[in-house]
Simulated assay, not measured.
Amino acid sequence: MSNQLLDEMISRISKFASIFGISRSELKVYAFLLLNGKSTARDTSEKLNMSYTKVYSILSRLEGRGWIVKIAKRPTLYEAVPVKEVWLNIKGIIAAKLEQLEKDFIEPLSAFTFSSPYTVIIIPSKDIISAMKEYLVEKSQKYFIAISYQELLTDPVLELIKADSTKGETRVILSKGVKFPDIPSIQMKTIDSMFGSGIITSSSMLLIVKSGESLIGLSSSHRYFVEIATVYFNYLWDLH
């Protein structure tokens, strides 16, 4: 299988897998071993056009998860565990995370009686940039920003992000391919892909996703939604 076909296969499942801490690179290395048989770290690195250091680290993580096994030494050969066994492993991860979510969020939320109303606002495509600017001028101790779509980075939005970096902690996560100017005061990371775009402040969150070819936004100041969004942002930040 060519690297192009392998990339196309991985792209279909990487967004789902990332939620459970499985990176695109890990999927790519596992799929390579599954489809091509046993291989050394060096050969895998060369065939996938990935650095040897990165491939070696990924192989160690996959071995720790039980996705691959060593079958020889000098040179060390790695072989993929059958995909059905790996899927059982993934189902275990999903079940554990859902159980933790129920314990940490669903049960406390169910027992909580809200004493004040809150709103979730749907923002149409034509108002997305305006909503972003409103969030970026909000007084906040933090500005966590995720950008998957280049069209969101208009000049006014970029200027407000730059200004925010002087007011509070400013972190920006970009999807691969999104261009962003080098601003020393901003902490920035690039990842292969992520679910949508958004802005999180100390008191509110804005989620932006694509519906067909159009963008749509969801805005809320409810503290539980803000906390969930912050947890997911920090997860992506720490993962890369």
Score class of each variant (00 low, 15 high):
151 E>T: 04
82 P>K: 03
80 A>K: 03
173 I>H: 03
178 V>W: 10
91 K>Q: 13
193 S>L: 08
13 I>F: 05
39 S>G: 04
114 F>S: 12
121 I>F: 02
212 G>F: 05
232 Y>W: 13
87 W>K: 10
71 I>V: 15
7 D>E: 11
148 S>D: 07
147 I>L: 05
35 L>V: 01
48 L>A: 06
195 F>V: 11
90 I>P: 02
104 D>N: 14
114 F>D: 10
104 D>T: 13
134 E>N: 14
205 M>Q: 06
186 I>V: 15
37 G>A: 10
82 P>V: 07
11 S>R: 13
232 Y>R: 15
180 F>T: 03
45 S>K: 07
230 T>L: 12
100 Q>G: 01
84 K>M: 10
124 P>Y: 01
71 I>H: 09
79 E>W: 01
10 I>V: 15
22 I>G: 01
109 L>S: 13
30 Y>S: 01
194 M>N: 01
80 A>Y: 06
222 H>R: 13
189 K>S: 05
59 L>P: 02
192 D>H: 13
53 T>Y: 12
30 Y>I: 03
113 T>Q: 12
233 F>Q: 08
65 R>I: 00
153 L>W: 01
116 S>N: 10
51 S>V: 07
126 K>V: 09
237 W>M: 09
65 R>Q: 09
4 Q>V: 11
162 K>L: 06
139 K>L: 13
149 Y>S: 01
240 H>C: 05
227 E>F: 09
226 V>G: 08
194 M>E: 06
26 E>R: 08
98 L>Q: 09
194 M>D: 01
96 A>D: 14
238 D>I: 04
28 K>T: 14
99 E>S: 14
31 A>S: 14
124 P>T: 07
58 I>T: 09
168 G>A: 12
45 S>N: 11
206 L>C: 04
76 T>H: 04
27 L>A: 03
226 V>C: 10
167 K>R: 15
184 P>I: 05
4 Q>L: 14
35 L>P: 00
3 N>A: 09
124 P>N: 10
176 K>S: 15
114 F>V: 10
197 S>R: 04
211 S>C: 02
188 M>E: 07
37 G>Q: 08
82 P>E: 09
63 E>F: 08
45 S>M: 10
82 P>H: 03
16 F>R: 02
70 K>Q: 15
14 S>K: 06
73 K>G: 07
79 E>F: 00
88 L>W: 02
137 V>N: 12
